[in-house]
Simulated assay, not measured.
Amino acid sequence: MRVGVGGSAGAVFYADKYHPIQAGSIDGTDVAPHDNAVLRALLCSTAGLYDPFGDPKAAGDPYCTVFVGHLSRLTDDETVRKAMGRYGKVKSMRLVRDIVTGASHGYAFVEYETDKEMRRAYEDAHHSIIDGSEVIVDYYRQQLMPGWIPRRLGM
Rank of each mutant, 00 (worst) to 15 (best):
I26M: 15
A37F: 10
A23W: 01
P20V: 02
L42S: 09
G28F: 02
R40D: 02
L49Q: 09
P33D: 04
A37E: 10
G48M: 12
I21N: 03
I21D: 04
R40Y: 02
V31D: 10
T29A: 12
S25M: 06
V38I: 15
P52H: 05
S25Q: 08
L39P: 02
L39H: 03
Y50C: 04
T29I: 09
L39D: 03
P33S: 04
L43H: 06
L49E: 06
A37N: 10
A47C: 13
L49I: 06
T46H: 12
G28P: 00
N36I: 13
H34S: 10
D35Q: 10
N36V: 11
A41H: 00
C44V: 15
G48K: 07
Q22M: 15
Y50W: 11
V31M: 14
L42G: 10
D35T: 05
T46C: 05
P20S: 01
A41N: 05
A32I: 12
F53G: 03
I21F: 01
F53K: 09
D35V: 09
L49R: 12
P20Q: 03
L42K: 11
V31H: 08
A32K: 15
S45F: 01
T46S: 11
T46P: 03
V31K: 11
L43I: 08
C44Q: 07
F53I: 06
S45T: 07
V38N: 00
I26D: 14
A41V: 04
I21A: 00
L49S: 06
A23L: 02
D27M: 12
G48P: 11
P52R: 03
G28V: 05
S45Y: 00
D35N: 11
C44E: 12
D27K: 13
Y50R: 04
Q22K: 12
N36M: 15
I21V: 12
H34D: 15
T29Y: 14
H34V: 14
L39V: 02
H34P: 09
A47R: 11
I21E: 00
T29P: 07
P52D: 09
P52F: 02
F53D: 08
L42A: 15
A32P: 10
P52S: 09
D51L: 06
Y50E: 01
A37D: 14
L42H: 08
S45M: 05
G24F: 01
P33Q: 01
G24I: 05
C44A: 15
G24A: 08
G24Y: 04
L49M: 13
A37M: 12
